[in-house]
Design a binder for these strands. Structure first.
Lengths: 200, 200
DNA sequence: CCCTTACGAAACGGCACCGTTGCGTATCGA
DNA sequence: TCGATACGCAACGGTGCCGTTTCGTAAGGG
């Protein structure tokens, strides 16, 4: 009978540094968030920013896309709790979350890739659609469906179209609106311009 | 009395080739339209594509941004004639123009830069906002204003917000909608989802 | 014909980054 | 203590593009 081993047998030698790994991911997200496109993103810059040797990066990821893929995977999408009282309130909550996050570095990562590199890195885009975009879309979809079910919204509207209209308006402001922070009442104003056309 | 000269006296020597100039601009727009970001766009690639020596490019433009600036300046924005009968018809006409152009290479140039490189090349973005975006925005602005004046639209709506909602929805579909051509009735569906909320 | 300028092509030195390798050191298990 | 692996660092040869220069040729005017 053998001595019991841990299920995942620890390989011999010095274990890989958790800290280095995190620093690499952080540096990657930072650089992307600063406006560096995926194409211009260089392993050397990431290594330098992370205070890490290039070896340490190449030991973990075989190429840039894999690294960015893993970096994006760490982006959580903590959805706001929805009151569920009225469609209007819930939509404002969702859109206002978008507005507040638009100022954050991490969210700018998402936006920059989704807007700028969508054609060139389809794998990347797909991956983080799943991670960062789709959960929020799902939340909005359910709010609208609930509104139709409850009679708050007209039954003949297209759910996906409503979502495109609402988030499109917010994205427009994020990218091309007046410089500086987005106005605090933006979400409310968007909803109040759109919702009357959808209400029963 | 001197012999009359052309107002712009032709300098001595071989004149610059119109053909080369056009080929350079074309090559630039082609490459951008194919998804090449401004940062990755290389003078060597442009020269090669245009069948031109790098010298010929550097003789005319001192750097890449100036070249792209001039290339964008050649993009015309031929606005569709508006019937002016109803706000609905005019908005559909404007949005449908966006939809049809979304498939064209030249328009993709515009979109790619506006969406992807907006942070990194503010001069560029500003310039072609003037050239390509603002005329269309102005047209839409007038349609909406006329609608308010005629009583077709509510007087308390925000004109700029309406524009953000309408064009945001179209842009959303362009970038993230189902692959392939945009459906022919997309403009109509957008307008018919938005307009009822704005109508008097 | 001669002068001037533009042309395409090729080559230059310089730079940034690629992906890899070797080095001396650090950190784990046996 | 020893073997194994990871670490940061520096250097490697290779590549692609930079912006410039040189070359032989082409196309205008006086």
């Amino acid at each position: 009978m053998t001595i019991q081993e841990p299920v995942t047998a620890r390989p011999a030698g010095r274990p890989r540094s958790e800290k280095a790994e995190k620093a690499i991911i952080e540096a990657t997200l930072d650089l992307i968030g600063e406006g560096t496109g995926i194409a211009e993103l260089s392993i050397e810059a990431i290594a330098s920013r992370a205070g890490v040797g290039k070896t340490t990066i190449y030991r973990r990821w075989s190429n840039k896309e894999d690294l960015v893929l893993d970096a994006l995977a760490t982006l959580k999408a903590p959805l706001p709790p929805l009151a569920g009282v009225s469609v209007r309130d819930d939509l404002i909550t969702l859109l206002d979350t978008m507005r507040r996050e638009a100022g954050q570095t991490r969210t700018r990562c998402v936006m920059n890739i989704a807007l700028g590199d969508s054609d060139r890195y389809p794998r990347l885009l797909e991956r983080f659609f799943d991670i960062a975009i789709e959960p929020r879309r799902q939340a909005m979809r359910e709010v609208i469906r609930r509104g139709i079910a409850s009679g708050e919204l007209r039954p003949d509207i297209e759910v996906e179209m409503c979502m495109a209209i609402l988030s499109g308006a917010m994205i427009w402001h994020t990218k091309w609106g007046p410089a500086g922070d987005l106005p605090a009442d933006l979400a409310e104003r968007i909803v109040d311009h759109v919702l009357p056309g959808l209400a029963a």
